[in-house]
């Protein structure tokens, strides 16, 4: 029996992607480092944003050239938006700028931990989907919020592992497992808060469909190498999930057979 994963694409809004790693494009020390990180990550999708910039500042031109040359699917975000109105407007600007209906929807409810505003998120998602957007919502790990987002037409959920940029990994495993178990057919991408490849592997072993992160790669001493480390960990976690993890147990059980054990002699 061939148990290898021959073709195991990530399917989002009906489109198949070979990589389960979505990489952010912020915080790199240079555009060239970012380019190298994208390449080593083997990702098919990159996130990016829109910001006010002085027209005389052409620093972004190199950034944009590298992004275009990567051939990756663009996933613009609405980072920093605190209201439905702001998020919808920025999404419309992104759709025109990047010529894509895909949007990573962020509606931030708290400045301290950048926690998504669940109420604004559902309202904004509903409005954008009516306008033809393919919405990938950055959400908390709350099951009911996830269900409401699906109700309004989202086909993907992107729950946080922990707050953006903290590197704390999977803070609420119960909630994340609940999401996975209760929404078994919905693509779930852990977005934000991962700091180490082992954390990404853990999420994939739990059955999550993909990983989106930025800071852990961009702020590594060697971002391209870290990008590759995450890519390998995500692949490993996915293979482990498909292979089926063993059940944990309380008592020890010898892996080497006891039958034929030498030096054991009955004395009576």
């Amino acid at each position: 029996m061939n148990t290898e994963i021959q073709h195991d694409p990530l399917v989002l809004y009906g489109e198949a992607f070979e990589s389960r790693f979505l990489l952010g494009t912020a915080l790199y020390s240079s555009p060239d480092i970012m380019r190298d990180a994208i390449e080593r990550s083997r990702c098919d999708i990159v996130t990016l944003g829109l910001r006010r910039q002085n027209p005389a500042n052409r620093d972004g031109d190199t950034f944009w050239r590298h992004i275009e040359a990567s051939g990756c699917r663009l996933l613009p975000n609405t980072a920093g938006c605190k209201s439905v109105k702001e998020a919808v407007t920025l999404a419309e600007m992104s759709r025109e700028m990047f010529d894509t209906p895909w949007v990573k929807l962020e509606v931030i409810g708290d400045d301290y931990n950048l926690q998504p505003d669940p109420f604004g998120l559902v309202e904004a998602a509903a409005g954008l989907i009516k306008k033809g957007f393919k919405v990938l919502p950055y959400c908390t790990d709350d099951l009911i919020l996830g269900q409401r987002l699906l109700d309004v037409g989202c086909e993907v959920l992107m729950p946080w592992g922990s707050p953006i940029g903290t590197g704390q990994g999977l803070l609420n495993r119960y909630n994340l497992r609940t999401l996975r178990e209760r929404l078994p057919t919905v693509p779930l991408i852990v977005d934000a808060g991962l700091g180490a490849p082992s954390q990404a592997a853990e999420a994939m072993e739990m059955g999550f469909d993909g990983i989106l992160l930025n800071t852990a790669v961009a702020k590594a001493s060697e971002p391209p190498l870290m990008a590759e480390a995450f890519a390998d960990a995500i692949d490993a976690g996915r293979k482990a999930y498909k292979a089926g993890l063993m059940q944990t147990r309380q008592t020890a059980s010898p892996s080497t057979p006891t039958l034929g054990q030498p030096f054991w002699h009955t004395t009576s």
Partner: peptide, 10 residues
């Protein structure tokens, strides 16, 4: 008036 350009984002 808000005029925006592409920038890195997560």
């Amino acid at each position: 008036i808000d005029i925006v350009k592409p920038i890195g984002g997560g």
